[in-house]
């Protein structure tokens, strides 16, 4: 198992390097000139400009700049200095990353804790009024953008009813609206996914076998169907991590939460490339780690995958070729 985690961590490295390269390349297309921004004035001499350009390292060819940036990141975790504040990006990120990850994780957990049981309930009660209600509600919820929900929530709960605070992040009450708004869409899609996966599993032969053994329906569902039904749901949950994190970054800005979202937005307005890259990198790391966790959970649920870790084989390949060869 440890070897598996180690290998997965190794695979993450090229992915993250790729992320860095893409983002760095993109940042070079960004309009506006960081040198002029940095000089802070339109009245500058060519010498001043050249000096500043040199100081920022922008006079070197792209590959060299990319290389030295990557080197800095890999060896010293150095994401460069913010053009706007002259402070190391790592520093400003460090202050804000906790808040964002906290919100992201809370939203994910809320979606999972509510979404999966509701989906199961809905599947077990297929074609009843509760099922219709849940499916209809989840279709509607899946269509509501989080940032709009956030604004409506402020309108209703802060402005009209005045029961929840609209900005900041100082008490537990402050968490309610951002977390709920960021998780709703994922919650809805988890409900739908769990339901359909469960219905699919219930049709399988081994469920018929279980029923023919004479067990109660609840045991059939929880002992035999649930684990199988969760396998595709976990995959979906993994794919949704990025969506939740991205969504919650935008929602942060609405609630004036001092997370990475507001940092990112102000960086975009000021063409502050190092910060943009830093935020994107940190988010990608988070997404990768979440996917790793998903893979581990996956292997706990599916013995077929687990046994392949033990024997050190990766999944897929062998079976396919054998099938090709056989029959």
């Amino acid at each position: 198992m440890l070897r598996f985690i180690g290998r997965r961590l190794l695979v993450m490295i090229p992915v993250l390097l790729g992320v860095l390269i893409i983002v760095y390349a993109l940042s070079c297309f960004m309009p506006g000139d960081p040198v002029i921004n940095k000089l802070g004035t339109q009245n500058y001499t060519q010498e001043q400009y050249d000096a500043m350009e040199h100081q920022l390292g922008l006079d070197q060819p792209f590959v060299v700049r990319l290389g030295s940036y990557l080197w800095g990141v890999v060896t010293r975790l150095d994401l460069g200095e913010s053009y706007a504040t002259n402070r190391p990006v790592t520093e400003s990120l460090a202050q804000r990353v906790g808040v964002s990850i906290q919100l992201g994780l809370m939203s994910l957990c809320l979606a999972g804790i509510l979404g999966i049981p509701i989906g199961i309930f809905s599947a077990v009660r297929q074609n009843t009024i509760p099922d219709y209600t849940i499916t209809t509600l989840s279709i509607i919820l899946a269509s509501l953008p989080g940032f709009w929900l956030a604004m409506e929530a402020i309108l209703i709960f802060s402005a009209k009813l005045q029961i929840l605070p609209a900005s900041g992040l100082t008490s537990w009450k402050h968490y309610i609206m951002p977390v709920v708004c960021a998780s709703m869409m994922t919650l809805a899609s988890l409900v739908r996914m769990t339901r359909s996966s469960m219905l699919e599993v219930i049709r399988q032969d081994y469920i018929r076998t279980a029923r023919s053994k004479g067990m109660k329906e609840t045991r059939v569902i929880f002992k035999h169907a649930l684990k199988n039904a969760l396998i595709p749901v976990i995959t979906v949950l993994g794919n949704q991590v990025g969506m939740v994190v991205g969504g919650s970054i935008i929602i942060e800005t609405i609630f004036n939460i001092p997370g990475m979202g507001s940092l990112m937005l102000s960086a975009i307005n000021q063409r502050d490339y190092p910060v943009i890259m830093g935020v994107t990198l940190v988010t990608s790391v988070f997404v990768c780690i979440c996917n790793l966790v998903v893979d581990i959970v996956y292997s706990l649920v599916d013995p077929q995958i687990r046994s392949q870790f033990v024997s050190g084989k990766k999944r897929g390949g062998k079976e396919k070729t054998e099938k090709e060869a056989a029959a």
């Binding site: 790729g18 943009i276 935020v279 988010t283 997404v287």
Partner: peptide, 19 residues
């Protein structure tokens, strides 16, 4: 894998900011 590692909305934000 690399494209998937960057959340879609952040990707769009970066590209949109660049272009």
């Amino acid at each position: 894998d690399i494209l998937m590692a960057i959340p879609g909305i952040l990707m769009a934000v970066c590209i949109s900011a660049a272009l």
